[in-house]
């Protein structure tokens, strides 16, 4: 009798607790999972589409739009065709412009903007002259806002490393920063999507660490 009552109680209460995720949270969870596992351009396109669907229904939320922009930048980074690359970056730029009004997490937006500029410059060296200044300004701004944010540190390091290499200067300072990024991202809880905040950067930092060791 008692056992049966307990079972009933559990079964009645279960739905209350387990299905507590709203549709938004369910969708974001799925999308963030896909994001963390994306490898090919097709995977990233799927991530873009998922976040776009969510973004359409969440006009006052910067997160889905941010992740759409990030996924597009990743697609551009992997794409070889210049016109497609630029079109993904244009769409990503539109996303970033749309969340400019959300000042709360400006550091994340600026870091991603810096990343976007760097992918643009990688297409054609002559773009460096046009965009270099803007990029420098933005990555420094992000770092000044929060020098413990792994992505802000990563983008400043990436930019400094690239400039130093281009001018034939010493890259050790920038390389030390990549170590710092890995440390920041290794901290417990840093990689878990806390409330779906941006969590990327580990792969790029590890790749740059390897480059530094050469």
């Amino acid at each position: 009798m008692k056992t049966l009552a307990t079972i009933v109680l559990i079964m009645v209460l279960n739905p209350v607790f387990s299905n507590s995720d709203s549709a938004y949270e369910k969708a974001m969870k799925k999308a963030m999972e896909k994001l963390n596992q994306a490898e090919s351009i097709e995977d990233w396109q799927g991530v873009v589409n998922q976040f776009e669907r969510i973004a359409r229904n969440e006009k006052e939320n910067w997160l889905p739009v941010y992740h759409t922009a990030y996924a597009r930048v990743m697609m551009a980074a992997m794409e070889e065709d210049i016109q497609k690359k630029d079109s993904y970056l244009d769409a990503a730029q539109q996303n970033l412009d749309a969340i400019e009004k959300f000042e709360h997490f400006a550091v994340e937006r600026l870091a991603l903007q810096g990343f976007l500029y760097m992918i643009r410059m990688s297409v054609d060296p002559s773009r460096g002259m046009e965009l270099g200044q803007n990029c420098a300004m933005i990555v420094n701004q992000a770092y000044a806002m929060n020098n413990q944010n792994p992505r802000a540190v990563l983008m400043l390091a990436q930019f400094n490393h690239g400039s130093a290499q281009y001018m034939g200067q010493d890259t050790s300072e920038a390389c030390a920063m990549f170590d710092e990024v890995v440390q920041l991202l290794d901290q417990p809880g840093a990689e878990e999507s806390e409330q779906f905040l941006p969590n990327w950067g580990k792969n790029l930092a590890l790749m740059m660490q390897q480059q530094c060791q050469k």
Partner: peptide
């Protein structure tokens, strides 16, 4: 067309077209 976003308006239901 691969990678098109197909979904129900005003919901989260949808998916991408494959290759």
């Amino acid at each position: 067309l691969a990678g098109a976003n197909v979904f129900i308006e005003e919901t989260y239901s949808g998916s991408s077209s494959n290759v």
